[in-house]
Design a binder for these strands. Structure first.
Lengths: 225, 225
DNA sequence: CGCGGCTTTGATGTTCATCAAGTAAAGTGG
DNA sequence: CCACTTTACTTGATGAACATCAAAGCCGCG
C-alpha cells in the first residue's frame, strides 16, 4: 500500500492543506523504510537527500564527539520530523540518526519539499512554524537539563519516557551509557542514582524494566534536584 | 531617510531577490528604532508583533531562570535576525532581548513577513535556510560550551568577541556576571580564570579593556581546556 | 554621602568525574 | 553448542573541579 498516504493516520497535519495535485506529487516521491533497532538512518556529514518523517518507533539524534563517545541531542517520537534541523541549511546532515526501536520512516525527496515550499506559501508558513517549534523544544531541553543536578536529570529522563509511552511502567529503550550521553553525565553516576531512587522506593528498576512508584516525588526531584 | 532600505548597506541578502512591489510593501511596514545600552527590546512572554533585524550594535538574548539570575542564550551581531527563533511558532517571545551596546534595530511588521512568505516561495525558502542556520549555530554553541572546562569556556568567549570586533584589543561589552551567565559558570570563577590568564601572560585585562597577547595559546585552551 | 551592584581574593564544601575491579549479559567464531 | 571476547552493568574509593560562603574595596548614581 505504498500510496496510502491519503488515509495514513500517522500523517502530519502539515500536509492537510495541500491540494490534490500537490499531494499526489508528494506521494509519488515518497518511500517508506523500515529500520531495525540499532541500525543507522543517516550519518553526520552525509549529503541530505530526503526529508524524513517518523511514522512509528523511536530514534536518537546524536553527534560523535571523541572517538568513543556520543553526544545525544534528542529522542524523536512518532509523528516527529527528523533532520529538520539542518534540511534547509547545510547540504549535509549535522547529526547522525539511529533507531532505538524497530522503526518505520517516511522518506520524501527533499527537492519535492523545496518545490512545494516555493509553490505553496501556506505550506511554507506551516513548515516554518513546525521547524521553529522543534528547534525551540530542543534548545529548551538542553538549557533545562544543564540547570539541573544529576538526580534532577535522571528524574527528567524517567518522566520523559513516561510521556512517550504514556505509562508508569515501561522498558527503557536506551542503555545506561546512552542515558548518560543524553543528559551529559557519566554512566557510573546514572547507575548510582538509579540505585538510589530504587532504595528510596521512588522507582522499581530491574534491567531495562522501569516502574515509577512515586510519581509526585519524582516530579519534585526533576524540578528541584 | 526612513525609506532608504533600497540602498541600505546593512540589508540582508534575504531581501535581495524581492521584486519592486514586494520590497516597497516591506519598506512601508518598516521602522528603525534606536536602543540605548542596557535598554530592553522585548521581554519573554510578550506578544510578537515584529520581525527584528539588527543593523548596528550588539544585543543579548536571554531567559530569566530564578528571580535574580539570567541564562544568556546568545549574543546577536549586526546583520543578524533576532527573535527568529520563535517568530513563526509561538505568538509570544520565548526569550528576552536587551542591548549590550547602543543599537539600531530594523522593525518589520510580522504580518508583512508572513504575507511575503505566502506570496513569494523563494523568499520562504531563503528564510527557512536562514532560520535553520541560526538555530544550528545556537544549539551547536550550547553543546560545545558544555563539553569544555571553565578555562576553555572563558577562552572561547574571549575569542568570540575577537571575532565580533575583528581585533585582539577590545572593550568587553558584558559584565563578569554576564559572561558567567552566558557560559554557565559562576561570576567568581570567571574573575579567577581571567586573573589566571593574565598571570600566564595570555591576556592583558584591566576593567573592561581586553588585549589578547598570546592568541595561539588562547586557541589551544579554547579547544582542549 | 550612602546605598546597591559589580569586582576581587581567600577559605571551605559539595558534586561529580575518574579510576579500579568484579559480575553479568550478549555477541562471535570454531 | 561451548569457549572466548567484548560490551554492559554495578559498587566502592579517591580526587579534582567547581560552587558556595565570606569579606572587603570599588564605582556609579540618586
Amino acid at each position: 500500500m505504498e500510496n496510502s498516504c491519503e488515509l495514513c493516520i500517522y500523517r502530519s497535519y502539515l500536509f492537510d492543506n495541500l491540494d490534490k495535485k500537490e499531494f499526489a506529487l508528494l506521494t509519488l516521491s515518497k518511500k517508506e523504510l523500515e529500520f531495525r533497532k540499532g541500525s543507522i538512518i543517516c550519518r553526520e556529514g552525509e549529503k541530505i537527500k530526503s526529508f524524513l518523517y517518523l511514522k512509528q518507533g523511536l530514534l536518537k539524534i546524536y553527534k560523535n564527539v571523541d572517538n568513543r563517545r556520543e553526544q545525544i541531542i534528542g529522542i524523536t517520537k512518532p509523528k516527529d520530523f527528523i533532520g529538520l534541523l539542518s534540511a534547509f541549511n547545510e547540504t549535509t546532515h549535522l547529526y547522525s540518526i539511529s533507531a532505538l526501536e524497530d522503526s518505520s520512516v517516511c522518506v520524501i525527496d527533499i527537492e519535492a519539499i523545496k518545490n512545494l515550499v516555493i509553490k505553496d506559501g501556506s505550506f511554507a508558513l506551516n513548515l516554518l512554524g513546525k521547524m521553529s517549534k522543534i528547534n525551540d523544544q530542543i534548545l529548551g531541553t538542553r538549557l533545562n537539563i544543564n540547570l539541573k543536578n544529576l538526580r534532577g536529570r535522571i528524574a527528567y529522563i524517567l518522566l520523559m519516557f513516561r510521556e512517550i509511552y504514556k505509562s508508569e511502567i515501561y522498558d527503557i529503550p536506551v542503555s545506561r551509557k546512552e542515558i548518560a550521553e543524553l543528559i551529559e553525565m557519566r554512566t557510573e553516576n546514572v547507575i548510582r542514582i538509579l540505585s538510589e531512587l530504587r532504595k528510596d522506593k521512588i522507582i522499581r528498576i530491574e534491567g531495562k524494566s522501569i516502574e515509577i512508584l512515586d510519581l509526585h516525588r519524582l516530579e519534585q526531584i526533576a524540578e528541584f534536584g
